[in-house]
Lab assay of single mutants.
Amino acid sequence: NQASVVANQLIPIQTALTLVMMRSEVVTPVGIPAEDIPRLVSMQVNRAVPLGTTLMPDMVKGYA
């Protein structure tokens, strides 16, 4: 099973992502693949992302 990127904390809207905000976890449905974590650093979320939420491509500006 492929690991996805999951929020390690509440990430407020417009926040630039850092490594400490994300973790990898095998979840359903599958979100952004964990191997993309380095690419996500400094990208902004376009909505508030609660703790434990799987990051989906449409939540990160410039990802999809």
Rank of each mutant, 00 (worst) to 15 (best):
T28P: 01
S42H: 10
L40C: 03
L55W: 03
A3I: 06
A16T: 13
L19A: 09
M59I: 05
N1D: 15
D36K: 10
S4F: 03
Q14G: 12
I11T: 00
V26Y: 12
I37G: 03
L55D: 02
G31P: 00
T18W: 04
I37Q: 04
G62Y: 10
I37L: 12
N8K: 08
G52D: 07
M21L: 05
V5P: 00
T53N: 10
M43K: 08
A16D: 06
V27C: 07
Q44I: 11
S24D: 06
V27Y: 02
R23H: 05
K61G: 07
V5L: 03
P50W: 05
G31Q: 02
S42I: 04
P57M: 06
Q9C: 10
T54K: 04
S24R: 10
S24N: 06
Q44R: 14
S4N: 00
V45Y: 00
A16R: 11
D36M: 14
M22V: 07
V20H: 13
G31W: 03
V27H: 03
Q14T: 12
R23L: 05
I13G: 15
L17T: 01
A64L: 13
V6R: 00
L10V: 12
P57S: 11
T54C: 05
Q44F: 15
V45L: 11
L51G: 12
A16S: 14
V45A: 04
N1G: 15
E25W: 06
A48L: 12
R23N: 05
A64E: 13
I11Q: 02
G52F: 04
Q9S: 10
I32E: 00
V26W: 11
M59K: 01
L55H: 01
M59N: 06
V26I: 14
V27M: 05
T15Q: 08
L19Y: 14
E35A: 11
V26G: 04
Q2N: 11
L10E: 09
A7Y: 03
Q9T: 13
P38E: 11
L40M: 06
P33Q: 06
T53M: 12
T18Q: 09
D36Y: 12
E25T: 07
V20Y: 15
E25S: 11
L55A: 02
V41W: 01
I37R: 06
E35I: 12
R39L: 12
G52V: 03
V49F: 02
L10I: 10
I11N: 01
G31I: 03
S24E: 11
